[in-house]
Amino acid sequence: MWSFNHTVSNWPTFSFIGIPGLEAAQIWISIPFCLLYVLALMGNALLLILVKTECNLHEPQFYFLAMLALTDLGLSLSTMPSVLAIFWFNVHYIGLDACLTQMFFIHTLSSVESGVLVAMAFDRLVAICAPLHYARILTHSTVACLSGAAVIRSATLVAPLPFLLRTFPFCGVNILSHSYCYYPDVLNLACGDVTFSGVYGLVFVLFTFAVDIVFILVSYMKIVATVLTLENRDRNWKSLHTCACHLCAVFVFYLPLISVAVLHHYAQNTSPVLFTSMSNAYLLVTPVLNPLVYSLKSRQIQAALRKRFGVQRVIAGK
């Protein structure tokens, strides 16, 4: 039996619950989780290697793709220790420092990924709406500035979150509803007035994910408006096809994010198994699917794969 901390403490131990009701099947459940982590690590590492070694991928859109792959690698490595520790070693505890460190990296990297998706939308906007000025606008320094801005913005906005949580004592049964440390989840366990911390968390979401979604929507409204003015239908299709990979990446990232936010709001009416499964999918599906999307949809990535592995034909590459 687990022994939980029922006393007020500034240095608590938090407990992960795994998947409620399926504790006896944890070893079997760990197999698909492990496979997904391996796919995520291998797929994103392969994208990084391709972008680095293939000269035809030395373009702004693929530099942003490499940044996306690096972020997905970080997200996978941030959650993998606690998730697999639950399933493999029945380790359900994490200290405050480790919890806050994991939380910082998860939220920072999630915000960075959102920022990179905005940069990729800007890349497609310039490529379609101002193709003659693409090389002048999307220079190496522009790519570096956009990527650096995404990292600096994320780290700056997330940094106060662990310090805000440190100011609170924790009391009662400190059971987390995820298999990793998530800011709203930890904040719900804090004792005292958490109004300011809750407001700051909302501000963080608004100034990152909400603002980024607006920028992406505006970019694609402009892209669609430009494409509709083109007289050549084949050119219209080719222009929109270049956005397919990015649009898939946007949906793969934001749909689980929004789903978890909605489940958090209505957690009292949600099945614990569904809630835990969605929370795990939130940070695991994106790193797994992004490499698959670009491998199946990007002709340049397919060409690089054929060149490197000597494959003559890639399924779905027609």
Rank of each mutant, 00 (worst) to 15 (best):
L36W: 02
K297N: 12
S30H: 08
A316V: 05
C145W: 08
E59W: 00
G317Y: 02
G148L: 01
R153F: 02
Y220K: 03
M221E: 11
L96N: 10
Y220Q: 10
N290L: 14
Q26T: 11
I258N: 07
V173E: 13
I86C: 10
L70I: 10
C171L: 04
L117N: 11
V186K: 03
E231S: 06
P287D: 14
D234A: 10
P12M: 08
A85D: 14
L39T: 14
V116N: 01
G95Q: 03
V8I: 15
V250A: 04
C248S: 10
V211P: 04
F196V: 15
L289H: 07
L206I: 04
V112M: 09
A244I: 01
Y134N: 00
D234G: 15
L68V: 15
F122S: 05
C245P: 11
F196T: 05
A149D: 12
C171W: 06
S111E: 05
H264D: 14
S15C: 08
P162M: 05
C191M: 11
H6W: 01
A144E: 09
C248A: 14
T270I: 06
T142H: 03
P160K: 08
V211F: 08
C181I: 06
R124W: 10
A281R: 14
I27F: 03
L48E: 13
A121N: 00
P162I: 08
S279Y: 01
H58K: 08
L202S: 01
G95Y: 03
I258Q: 10
R299G: 12
G198A: 09
L50V: 11
D123C: 02
G148M: 03
E59G: 02
L47D: 07
F168N: 04
M80A: 15
T208H: 12
A69W: 01
F104T: 15
E54R: 10
G198T: 05
F89I: 06
L138G: 05
F207K: 07
V250M: 04
K52W: 08
F251A: 15
G43N: 00
T276Y: 00
T156K: 06
T71M: 01
T242K: 01
D185T: 09
Y63K: 04
E54S: 07
C55Q: 09
C99G: 13
V260I: 00
F105Y: 15
A150M: 02
V151R: 03
R306M: 02
W11C: 05
P32H: 03
L68G: 11
L84Q: 13
G18L: 12
C248K: 02
I213A: 03
A261W: 01
L132I: 07
N174M: 11
A24T: 02
I27Y: 03
L65E: 04
H92S: 10
V203E: 11
G310R: 07
G18V: 09
L165G: 00
F215K: 05
T101L: 12
C191F: 01
L73Y: 01
H58G: 13
V83H: 00
L22V: 00
S141V: 08
F14H: 02
K238D: 09
M221S: 15
V186L: 13
N188Q: 06
K238R: 10
C243Q: 01
V8P: 01
L283V: 13
A25K: 03
W88R: 07
A303P: 10
F309C: 12
I213G: 00
Y254E: 14
L165E: 13
W11T: 15
L206Q: 08
K238G: 00
S114C: 15
I258C: 11
A249L: 09
C171D: 11
T142R: 06
